[in-house]
Amino acid sequence: MPAAFNIYDLYKIMFDNKIILIYQGVFDQEMIKSVISMTEKKLIQDNTDENLRKKLFNIMVEGLQNICKHQLDIDSTENNPFLIISSDVDSFDVVTGNLIANDKIGIVKEKIDYVNSLNKDELKEYYKKARLNSVISSVGGAGLGFIDMVRKSGNPLEYKFYDLGTDFSFFIQKTKVGNSN
């Protein structure tokens, strides 16, 4: 860490934005288990509503396993995937970021825009159909993550692609998990 870096500034940013967790680095199953168990403990301590806790757990698993299965094996220490969780009174924001090849942006965008456009009943039908037709991929995914995240959170998925000026972009995705739905 550069000496000029002010730890207090980072703390202030976290505090002001109600960030309870920031992680950047390797995403694997062990990391996912640790982060989830840590978050769960904190939520139990804070007496967070059980249903909200389950939904957050759900969104975290899908989001993190998505990255775990799709992270690019690029020999670079730059642009690690990250996870940020912030909490408000009755909701949590789960934000993840990971590198994506520019030629994959279109398909990801199309997938998310489509699930975001569906209402509750349409999502249910789409999930059922997609699950029936899905095949577990070589990386162990069923291709159902985004649909499930919209269904369980009850909110559309927000996203952004940051152009890095190379063949890759940074894919930032935010899911709001609220208690009201």
């Binding site: 757990f57 899908e62 396993q65 699950r131 899905s134 577990i136």
Partner: peptide
């Protein structure tokens, strides 16, 4: 108590 989407496919 909980299953992820890939497990959901396998359960089916």
């Amino acid at each position: 108590e909980y299953f992820n989407t890939a497990s959901s496919k396998i359960i089916l």
